[in-house]
């Protein structure tokens, strides 16, 4: 009976699924937009996903074997860096930005806070090569993988080619990242009419729709655009966001709108991790937003919220936590079977 219910709910709430045995490795939740990632150029397979997962957790990707992707993107915090405002990398060097949570990446078409990366496959090159992150080069990573005992066999199983290449290394990492789908929060079950918001959560949801969802648009909770939400520049970092990529003044201080799913666990907040608590963020939106030429129009009229209303919005934001995602063993450190 229980199994039937599970099967039924999968049939209802998933419009596409990549299933191996009893495991759903990737799926498109019902009523979600189509993914941006071009799967035809990198078709999913269990062996490639597993290889990507192993690479994600393997410090072999860093110069001195000390840092893996997971060092800055840990599952229990929705794949962001625990507690650090600015990410920490090799030799304890501190980066210049807060590591974003990694989730629902198949729906993104640009990556990084400023959109410097145009395709998921190319993302891993950035941390691998960054002197403050992993301090390595992809050519050297490939050389190390070739000389390892485990990888040549895994690459052969995954790609039918025993010669390890940069292309295959990056595609495997993408495959794992693509499986990080989160769509099973309380919010989702309310939308599926399987559960109800409390009165407070419901009030928060209304206030959120009125004040926040033009940028943090459902169901991804981001419009995937670059917006200036009015944060004053941190003069120790002088990070002007999107302008660095386009060299266009109109893009000054614009950052990629982050998703708010699992926001309960992905603190600290903003591109430089300047806020520790959600209450700080709400106080900021009502009284900290700074006017500038590129400030997004939605914020030109001040957001007004009473302190009770702020508490309600936070209560709603907490319904975006997806425990199944945070503790899904398919995403955790791969233990040998």
């Amino acid at each position: 009976m229980k199994k039937a219910v599970v099967l039924f709910s999968i049939a209802c709430f998933v419009s596409f699924a990549f299933v191996i045995g009893t495991q759903t490795l990737f799926y498109i939740p019902k009523n979600w937009p189509a993914p941006q990632y071009n799967f035809s150029k990198n078709p999913l397979s269990e062996a490639k996903i597993e290889l990507g997962r192993k690479l994600f957790y393997d410090p072999i990707l860093s110069r001195n074997g000390s840092i893996s992707c997971a060092s800055c993107h840990s599952q229990y915090t929705a794949f962001t860096h625990v507690d650090h405002a600015l990410s920490h990398g090799i030799d304890d060097r501190v980066g210049t930005r807060n590591s974003p949570a990694l989730m629902n990446l198949a729906w993104h078409n640009t990556f990084m806070w400023d959109g410097a990366i145009n395709q998921l496959d190319m993302q891993a090159l950035a941390p691998i090569s960054h002197p403050d992150e992993m301090g390595e080069s992809i050519a050297n990573v490939v050389a190390k993988l070739k000389h390892s005992t485990a990888y040549p066999k895994l690459f052969f199983t995954a790609f039918n080619d025993s010669i390890i290449t940069g292309e295959h290394t990056l595609k495997a990492i993408s495959q794992f990242l693509l499986t990080l789908v989160t769509a099973n929060s309380k919010y989702d079950s309310v939308m599926r009419k399987l559960s109800y918001f409390t009165v407070q959560q419901n009030s928060g949801y209304r206030l959120f729709q009125k004040n926040c969802s033009s940028c943090h648009i459902e169901p991804l909770f981001t419009n995937l655009q670059f917006e200036n939400n009015g944060l004053p520049v941190d003069t120790t970092l002088n990070d002007f966001g999107r302008m660095k990529v386009t060299l266009n003044k109109n893009d000054s201080l614009k950052f990629k709108v982050p998703s708010l799913r699992n926001i309960e666990f992905s603190y600290p907040y903003m591109h430089d991790g300047r806020f520790k608590r959600l209450s700080d963020v709400l106080n900021y939106y009502t009284s900290g937003v700074q006017y500038s030429n590129t400030l997004s129009p939605q914020l030109k009229n001040k957001i007004k919220l009473t302190s009770n209303e702020k508490v309600d919005i936070i209560a709603f934001l907490l319904t975006l936590t997806d425990k199944e995602f945070l503790f899904n063993t398919n995403f955790s450190f791969p233990r040998t079977k």
Binding site: A116, Q119, D121, S129, S137, A139, E167, K171
Partner: peptide, 20 residues
Amino acid sequence: SGAMGGDLDPTKGMYWTWQS
């Protein structure tokens, strides 16, 4: 178009890493 092979493989050192 994402990761490519052959002469276009990023290991050839002709791909920017911090900006695609």
